[in-house]
């Protein structure tokens, strides 16, 4: 089929981008039990940070990524210091944090609207040009996205596996109390996890806006899609969510091609719902025995 290579290119590109977002979300859920509904806004802020860095400050294009990473990490840290750390004691944390982050998300989105206006802007941090891979012409931007995403993911995976911080994060995610007994400073871990996921979101935002455009609600739908990719894999399962990101990106690409762009998200959602009815803990999730 003639269209298949194009679908694949889209799927791989979008999948790479989503897996960055799912990584951040899964990390925060696994380590803290927190569904960060402000993640989408951190995406948006990253995209705009890159825009400002390049357009307003006149820095070279790769600084856009630096700005996005820094702002994302900063927002993550502020979320911890200003919000999360007061709420951890409450047993209804899981629920309350969702409401609180929804509030913050909308407030921040409005701030962006106020500062930059509602008109869509072009993302200056992007490459132009095409490359020919076999029979298919591929935009260099797509290649950049895939390369960057994969590199970052490998970096994060390696950090988690080998570094002291990484071990502390994994330990906290797998058994928080045992980690505490070993002297892991879990509040610092929470701070670092939020900062890291913010940085990841920031980069995702730059990449996403380079494919589409910058607008205040940029991160909202991608965040929801990334979330349901995490959920379908089993929340907290990092490699699973990356796999789910690619698979679902492929499904979305096919759907959009054959049925039209607007049916991508709905079809995705229906599939995820069906998958969750079949396996409520996620396709790769482990059934957890809850001590009542």
């Amino acid at each position: 089929m003639d269209v298949l290579p194009y679908i694949l290119v889209t799927a791989v590109t979008v999948g790479a981008m989503y897996s960055l977002a799912t990584l951040g979300l899964s990390l925060v859920w696994g380590a803290m039990g927190m569904l960060n509904m402000a993640h989408g806004t951190m995406l948006t802020l990253g995209g705009y940070a890159a825009y400002s860095a390049v357009t307003t400050l006149g820095l070279p294009w790769y600084f856009g990524f630096v700005a996005a990473i820094l702002l994302g990490a900063l927002v993550g840290a502020i979320l911890y210091y200003g919000l999360v750390r007061f709420m951890l004691r409450n047993p209804a944390f899981e629920t309350n944090i969702i409401i609180a982050t929804v509030g913050i998300a909308i407030a921040l989105e409005n701030l962006v609207l106020k500062i930059y206006g509602g008109q869509p802007l072009g993302q200056p941090v992007s490459l132009h040009g095409t490359l020919r891979l076999g029979v298919v012409p591929v935009q260099t931007q797509n290649i950049l996205i895939v390369v960057m995403s994969v590199t970052i993911m490998v970096l994060v995976a390696w950090t988690l596996k080998t570094s002291r911080v990484g071990r502390a994060i994994r330990a906290t995610a797998q058994n928080r109390e045992a980690a505490q007994l070993m002297g892991v400073p879990i509040r610092k871990v929470y701070l670092k996890v939020l900062a890291i996921s913010g940085a990841l979101a920031g980069v995702s935002g730059v990449l996403l806006s380079s494919l589409t455009q910058l607008s205040p609600p940029l991160g909202n739908d991608p965040m929801l899609k990334a979330f349901i990719m995490c959920v379908v894999a089993g929340l907290g399962n990092l490699p699973g969510s990356v796999l789910a990101a690619f698979v679902l990106a492929l499904v979305e690409a096919c759907t959009q091609f054959y049925l039209g762009a607007r049916w991508g998200f709905p079809v995705l959602l229906i599939l995820v719902i069906l998958a969750l009815i079949w396996r409520p803990y996620g396709v790769f999730g482990r059934t957890q025995v809850t001590r009542l």
Partner: peptide
């Protein structure tokens, strides 16, 4: 701790 609480993964 009771029940080991090992890091399963």
């Amino acid at each position: 701790p009771q029940g080991d609480m090992l890091f399963a993964d």
